[in-house]
Simulated assay, not measured.
Amino acid sequence: MAKDKTSKKTRLPPAHASPSLAQDPARKPPSWPAFKPRLPVADLDVDFPVPALADKIALVRNFWPKSLCRGYVTFVESLPLALTPGRPKRGEAVRVNDRFQVQDPAFAQRLWLETGIQELVLREPFRHLWGGEVIGLNPNIRVYRYCKGHFFDSHYDDANVVTLKQEAGVETTGKTTWTMLLYLTDDCVGGETVFFPHDREVEKEAIAISPEAGMLLLHKHGDDCLLHAGREVQQGVKWILRTDLVVRR
């Protein structure tokens, strides 16, 4: 799992936060629900909330219908979520949220082939953005739940080297280049994903993306990652499904 490089924020979460159980490498993948209705339900397009940062932040609205999001929330509520550690290791950002993490190449392949994301990112107007030839999605699947009082302090997402199985079982080495967050809910107060384009926490410069059920937020990570944070949830619950775009190495 990528480490999160911290800013200088020092606020700590409650002392009772316990070590996460979500990083068990032997965890068996769950039986993820089918994508019903069949995806995509509408023509997908990439939206750039800040045109000057089109090479770093992108949105795909209506990626999933709200009915599918609701079904997945019901399902992920049954997963063995665990609270993240209260005191992070040196060099990691302070975060308080519940999470589930699993290595699931089959589900990553389903997301890649059955949702329309493959066709979208390979479309000519956008394919130059991703840092190389996109070959699939990271099999490291993460589910995040942010309840009232949960947050993720300012940090950067690292890139990772992963191995994907391609046609005929051939393994290909790739590198993650963009974080891919799928919001499953939008009925919370707070919980915005906030980017700081000048690598400093200046509120008037902040670019805030509010959760929107069924919307994808993609942002570049690795060396070109923007400083970003998950604002504290004031009311309600924010659910996120995460993977990453993988390019041929």
Rank of each mutant, 00 (worst) to 15 (best):
A93V: 04
L21Y: 08
A58M: 03
Q235L: 12
H150Q: 11
I135W: 04
G191S: 10
D47C: 06
A2E: 07
P80R: 07
G91I: 06
E114F: 02
W239L: 05
D223N: 13
A213M: 10
V237N: 10
G149S: 11
V73I: 12
T115L: 01
E133Y: 05
V50I: 14
P25L: 11
A54S: 13
R110T: 05
F48P: 01
G230H: 11
L227S: 09
A22D: 12
T185H: 05
Y146I: 02
P211V: 04
A26E: 14
L226V: 01
E205G: 04
Q118V: 02
W130H: 05
A42L: 09
F195V: 00
K5E: 12
A26K: 15
A52Q: 05
P25E: 13
V121F: 06
R95Q: 14
S7E: 13
P197D: 04
P33S: 11
N97K: 11
G236M: 11
C147S: 15
H128R: 12
R249Y: 05
P30S: 15
G174Q: 07
E203T: 10
S67N: 08
C147M: 12
I209Q: 03
P33N: 11
V46L: 14
G132A: 06
F35K: 02
S154D: 10
L122T: 13
F63G: 02
V50H: 00
D47I: 14
R110F: 03
L53I: 00
Y72Q: 09
V94P: 00
L39S: 02
K204Y: 02
E119Y: 03
G71H: 09
D153N: 10
F63C: 03
L21I: 10
V94S: 10
N140C: 08
Q23W: 15
H228F: 03
V73N: 04
R249C: 11
T243R: 08
A213T: 08
P37C: 08
T177K: 08
F35V: 08
L79S: 09
L83Q: 15
D199K: 11
L216R: 01
G222Y: 04
V237H: 10
I240Y: 01
A229C: 13
A54L: 00
A82P: 01
Y146W: 08
G174L: 04
N62W: 09
D43C: 07
A168K: 15
R95S: 09
L217C: 06
V143H: 02
P13E: 06
L81Q: 09
F126I: 02
F75D: 03
C147L: 11
L44M: 10
E124L: 10
A213R: 04
A52W: 00
R95K: 13
E201L: 10
K8I: 12
K238H: 06
D244V: 04
L182C: 08
G116H: 03
R70E: 11
L218I: 02
G131M: 07
H150D: 15
V143G: 01
F100A: 04
P105Q: 07
E133Q: 11
Q166W: 06
L68G: 00
H198V: 09
D153H: 07
A82C: 08
L53P: 00
C188A: 15
I141T: 05
D45E: 15
V102F: 07
V96F: 09
E205I: 02
A159G: 08
H155Q: 05
R110V: 01
